[in-house]
């Protein structure tokens, strides 16, 4: 009878203590919303800067690294800045190539990214043609002038 009571007591103890042990390892999630900055780095050919290294500088200490990381295979990187208004500088680089851009964060205004507008192929072709015209024209002008001065001499 005593043995039966002891077994019953052991089962009761385990039954009570097991949920308590599980409760001591429970996870807790605290949720808050935050404004994140999402960057996408590509080469001028359109290829992503896969696994590019990222360096972030906060506006209040532009010479000290605030944070760093690595972009994903598509050249994307996200970070949540501190509540410091101003221009956050972000550099994404790989093998000596890269770009530094600034993200303006301040007040109630949404974040704005400073970026240069992409050139079209027509614009590029026009610039090449203009430079070619200028370079060749200058060269031929010098040669023609030299030919004239030789003739006059």
């Amino acid at each position: 009878m005593h043995r039966l009571a002891a077994c019953f007591g052991l089962v009761l103890t385990l039954g009570i203590s097991a949920p308590m042990a599980a409760h001591s390892h429970a996870a807790v999630i605290e949720v808050e919303t935050a404004q994140a900055i999402r960057l996408h780095a590509r080469y001028d050919t359109g290829a992503p800067m896969a696994h590019a290294q990222v360096i972030i500088y906060a506006p209040d200490a532009p010479t000290e690294v605030w944070g760093q990381g690595v972009a994903d295979r598509d050249g994307r990187f996200e970070f949540i800045p501190d509540a410091i208004a101003g221009a956050w500088a972000v550099q994404m680089r790989q093998a000596g190539h890269g770009v530094t851009t600034s993200v303006e964060i301040g007040g109630a205004a949404p974040a704005s990214l400073a970026r240069a507008p992409a050139q079209t192929w027509t614009q590029r072709a026009l610039m090449v043609a203009l430079v070619a015209w200028g370079a060749l024209g200058t060269g031929l002008y010098i040669r023609a002038r030299k030919g004239g001065s030789d003739a006059s001499a």
């Binding site: 080469y43 050919t45 290829a47 896969a50 590029r124 370079a135 031929l140």
Partner: peptide, 29 residues
Amino acid sequence: PSAAIPRAAMLTTVFFAASLVAIPVPPAS
């Protein structure tokens, strides 16, 4: 020296425009 200036001008233009010619070498170019 001035005799080489037209050639230098022409090749400067070629060099300037050459950076637009991308050769695809997977996975980069």
